[in-house]
C-alpha cells in the first residue's frame, strides 16, 4: 500500500475511534465505530491479510455494529445529558494514558522489528507449498496465490478443534445467561 493511503486510513481509524468516545449521541458513536472498523479493515488488507480484512467488514462493521444500532434504537437511548466531569478522574485518566503512551513509545522505539515492511519479507510460495499437506492449499501456493481463508480454516479445525468446542460451551453459557437475566418471568 502506498504511504499516503496508509496515512489516510490510519487517520480515518483514529479520528473516528476518538469520535466514538467524544460523541454524546449513541447512534453517532456507533456509526463512528463502523467507519473506524472500515479503516482498520483497509490496514489489514494492506498487510496482505485479505481474509481478516473482509471478515472485519462483514462481521464487525456489518453484523455486530448493526446489532448495536438495533439495540440502541430499540431501547431508545437518548443523547447523554451534559454532566460535569469529575476533574480528578479526568486528570488521573489523562495521566494514566500518558504514562502508558510513554511506556509504549519507549518499548517500540527500542524494537527494530518495526523497521521491516511487508515488502522486505516476501512470501516464498514454493517452500511454503512443500510443507503443506492439504492438496487445495498446496495448489494455491504453487500458483503463488495466498490461500489465507483456507489456511485459517485449516488451522482452526485441524490444530485447535478442542478450543473451538470450548468456545462453543462459552457461547452456550452466554446465551443461557442472556435469557435468564432478561426473561420477564422466571418460573
Amino acid at each position: 500500500m502506498p504511504a499516503p493511503l496508509f496515512y489516510f486510513f490510519s487517520l480515518l481509524m483514529l479520528i473516528f475511534g476518538a469520535l466514538v468516545v467524544i460523541c454524546r449521541n449513541p447512534v453517532a458513536s456507533a456509526l463512528s465505530l463502523v467507519v473506524s472498523f472500515v479503516g482498520l479493515a483497509a490496514l489489514f488488507i494492506s498487510l496482505d491479510a485479505y481474509f481478516i480484512g473482509t471478515i472485519q467488514i462483514l462481521v464487525y462493521a456489518g453484523a455486530v455494529m448493526v446489532l448495536f444500532l438495533f439495540i440502541i434504537m430499540l431501547l431508545d437511548i437518548r443523547a447523554e445529558a451534559g454532566r460535569k466531569p469529575n476533574m480528578l478522574a479526568v486528570v488521573g485518566g489523562i495521566a494514566l494514558a500518558v504514562i502508558f503512551l510513554v511506556q509504549l513509545g519507549s518499548v517500540l522505539s527500542k524494537n527494530e522489528m518495526g523497521n521491516k515492511t511487508v515488502a522486505d519479507v516476501p512470501i516464498n510460495y514454493q517452500t511454503a507449498a512443500q510443507v503443506q499437506k492439504l492438496d487445495t492449499i498446496k495448489a494455491d501456493l504453487q500458483n503463488s496465490t495466498l490461500p489465507d481463508a483456507k489456511l485459517v480454516g485449516q488451522t482452526l479445525f485441524n490444530r485447535y478443534p478442542f478450543q473451538i468446542q470450548l468456545i462453543g460451551c462459552l457461547l452456550l453459557v452466554g446465551t443461557v445467561g442472556v435469557v435468564l437475566l432478561s426473561k420477564r418471568e422466571v418460573n
Binding site: 470450548l166 462459552l170 452466554g174 445467561g177 437475566l181
Partner: peptide
C-alpha cells in the same frame, strides 16, 4: 469460559 460463566 470461566469468566463469562461468572458474569452470569
Amino acid at each position: 469460559l470461566v469468566t463469562v460463566s461468572f458474569y452470569v
